[in-house]
């Protein structure tokens, strides 16, 4: 695959439009993509540019229409078996090509595991600026300003990218609201040239098992327990019921509850090993807050 080049003489004026990477798995779009289309629409309007949705996968049918209903002026579709399921190397190579061809000014990517895996890879070959876990994105002082929590949330850093394009940002699910789709909106769907072949890939997905457990990034309310629960998740379930929420816990706590409470072990133990992880507690990104796992009952 293509290794990076370090071209720093970039004509930033040649770059236009706001792109949103629409993460999908088996036709199921990650909810954060809709949130980013809403945010991207605002940014594009303010910049007087178009909002472009980028969809990669196999047999993509209704997703482009929904992207338009949710604010996209154009949808770039890369439809090929090489893009299903997600792998960083074919996705990265295709994205590099599209950026070179079409020169977007801004690219928004969901801060999911897939989105972060993708963003970290694609920022390099285009020598793009990439800011992780943004909580505010705005046009201010005549430039695109990305803000993210720093130092465990005690400070908010403003990150700018004056001389490189695209300006890329990852955003966690739930940071921005998603607007209701407007089925009457009009837009253009473009099938782009696929530049990756299966023979060029370096990875093979042997097995994929998702959907057996609630994704806590989709939950509005999460009641989370740590080792202080000492294996007793009953109060958490009670509170979750009262709040119509989902129960989650740190891995160690869920493990302990699973072994100590055989009557509920099937509900609390991790289904098929590790389950989804996220940072439901705070938008401030930090390794120390990682390791939540969903408990089920």
């Amino acid at each position: 695959m293509m290794a990076a080049t370090g071209d720093t003489d970039i004509d930033v004026e040649a770059y236009d439009d706001v792109w949103v990477f629409v993460e999908q798995h088996d036709g199921e779009v990650a909810s954060v993509a809709w949130e980013l289309l809403t945010k991207g629409r605002d940014l594009a309007d303010e910049r007087g540019e178009d909002l472009v949705a980028l969809v990669m996968g196999e047999d993509i049918d209704s997703i482009p229409e929904e992207c338009i209903a949710r604010g996209a002026d154009r949808v770039l579709v890369a439809d090929d078996p090489v893009f299903e399921p997600y792998r960083s190397d074919p996705y990265g190579e295709q994205f590099r090509y599209l950026v070179e061809e079409r020169k977007p000014a801004i690219a928004l990517i969901g801060g999911t595991h897939t989105g972060r895996d993708f963003a970290g890879r694609v920022a390099v070959p285009n020598h793009a600026g990439l800011t992780a876990d943004c909580t505010e994105l705005e046009m201010a002082n005549d430039r695109y300003e990305m803000r993210r929590p720093a130092f465990g949330g005690d400070a908010l850093a403003t990150i700018i990218c004056p001389d490189h394009r695209p300006q890329m940002s990852t955003v966690r699910a739930g940071v921005f609201p998603a607007a209701e789709p407007d089925p009457d909106r009009e837009g253009e769907v473009i099938d782009v040239e696929v530049v990756v072949e299966e023979d060029d890939t370096m990875t093979e997905v042997l097995e994929r098992d998702v959907g057996d457990v609630a994704d806590i990034t989709d939950a509005d309310v999460v009641v989370a327990g740590g080792m202080g629960t000492e294996g007793d998740f009953d109060p958490l379930w009670e509170l979750a019921d009262a709040l119509d929420g989902t129960v989650a816990g740190t891995r160690d706590a869920v493990d302990e509850a699973g072994s100590n409470r055989p009557d509920r072990s099937a509900k609390l133990a991790r289904p098929s090993g590790r389950s989804c992880t996220s940072r439901p507690v705070s938008p401030a990104p930090s390794s120390t807050s990682r390791g939540w796992t969903t408990a089920r009952r």
């Binding site: 190397d89 970290g120 990439l130």
Partner: peptide, 30 residues
């Protein structure tokens, strides 16, 4: 590499190494 650092929390360096060298990458590994 580790998943991310506690001072910057980007997780961007391992994919960046892979991209610079044109190598495969595997993140969030269990």
């Amino acid at each position: 590499g580790g998943e991310e650092t506690t001072d910057s929390s980007t997780g961007q360096v391992p994919p960046g190494i892979a991209a610079h060298n044109g190598w495969a990458q595997l993140t969030y590994v269990e």
